[in-house]
Design a protein around this nucleic acid. Structure first.
Lengths: 157, 157
DNA sequence: TTAAAACCTCAAGTACACTTGAGGCCAAGC
DNA sequence: GCTTGGCCTCAAGTGTACTTGAGGTTTTAA
C-alpha cells in the first residue's frame, strides 16, 4: 500500500510485485550486482522506475537460458552514466537471437527425431535420438547446455 | 580393456562410456531408482545391454526438460517383468511431444516478441516481452522451468 | 606375482538461484 | 502513541543433479 510518492520511485515490495519477482530475489540480485538501489532516510531501498526494465531484462534473459553470471556480464555493456535508452536495451536483446535460434533448432531436431522414431519403429537404430547418446550430447554443446540441467564436465580422457 | 564377455554384459565403466554419462551418474541414477544393475561375484555392477536404452531415455528426457522425478514416474509405466519393447519406449516418448511442442512454441514466441520489439523500438509497451513479466513467467510454468534452471559452465576442451 | 586400473560404499562437497529465519528498525494508519 | 506490516542485515537452508574424496576391494595386464 506504500505509494511512496506518486512519482517514479518504488519501494522494494512494489518493485517486486511489478517486476514479477520476490522481494528476496531483488535483494539477491543486488548482492550479485545485477541491479542497484537507492535508500531513503530510514535506510530502506527505493527504486527508480527504470529498474523495472532492468529486472525484466534479467528475467527474460533467464528464460533465454542465460545464467546470472552471463546476464551480469551483458549488463556491464550498458552505460553507467545515464539511464539506458531503448536502443541500448534493443542492442543487448539482439544478442540473444542466435542463442534462442540455436535452442529452438535443437529442440525441433529432438522432436523431429522422436517423431520419426516413433513412426517407423527405428528405436534400435544408431541414428535414433533415443538410442544414440551423441544426439542428446549435441544439445548440450556451445550455448545449448542449459537444456540439460547441471551438465557435467566432459571428461576428455 | 574391460570387455567382461563378448556377450551383452557391460561393466559400469563401459556402460557409462557407451551411455554418454559419468560412472558416478550411473550410481546416482541407481540410487534414485532410475536404473538397476546386477552384480558379479566380486560385488561389482554389471549391466545388460538393455540398460543403455534406459539410460538414453533418461538423457533424452532431460533434454526435453523433465526432472529426474518426472522421468522416474514415466519409467514406472514400463513393464517390470520383461525387457521393454520398442513399442513400450515409443509410447513413453510420444508423451514428450506435447511438452516439446509447448517448449518450442514458448521459445519461438519469445524470439518473435524480441524481434518485433527490436525492430519497432516498442520496448516500453506493455506487450513487450522484455517489459511484461507475465510473458516470461509463462515460460516457467509447469514443466518448463528447467529452461531457467541451473547452467553450469562447461569448460570447453 | 604384482602393480595399476577399475570398482565398491558412504559422506560430504559443488553449483545455481534463490528462500527462510532470527532479531530488530522504520513508517503508516487509527 | 501504538500496533501492524514492511523493511533491514546476516546466516543458514532448500532443491536439483550430480561430483569428489576417503578408505578399501576386485580385476586385469604385464
Amino acid at each position: 500500500m506504500t505509494e511512496l510518492k506518486s512519482t517514479s520511485l518504488l519501494s522494494i515490495g512494489e518493485c517486486a510485485k511489478r517486476g514479477g519477482v520476490a522481494v528476496s530475489a531483488l535483494r539477491f540480485y543486488e548482492e550479485r550486482g545485477l541491479i542497484t538501489s537507492l535508500r531513503n532516510t530510514g535506510g530502506q531501498r527505493i527504486y527508480p522506475r527504470a529498474s523495472l526494465r532492468r529486472i525484466a531484462f534479467v528475467r527474460a534473459a533467464q528464460a533465454v537460458g542465460l545464467s546470472l553470471d552471463e546476464i551480469t556480464e551483458a549488463l556491464t555493456t550498458l552505460p553507467d552514466s545515464r539511464t539506458p535508452t531503448v536502443a541500448d536495451w534493443a542492442k543487448l536483446s539482439a544478442n540473444w537471437l542466435p542463442t534462442l535460434d540455436a535452442r529452438i533448432a535443437a529442440l525441433v531436431a529432438l522432436r523431429d527425431n522422436l517423431t520419426s522414431c516413433i513412426g517407423c519403429g527405428c528405436l534400435s537404430l544408431k541414428k535414433c535420438a533415443l538410442y544414440n547418446p551423441q544426439d542428446v550430447v549435441a544439445l548440450k554443446g556451445n550455448g545449448a547446455q542449459i537444456l540439460i540441467a547441471q551438465t557435467k564436465k566432459v571428461n576428455a580422457g
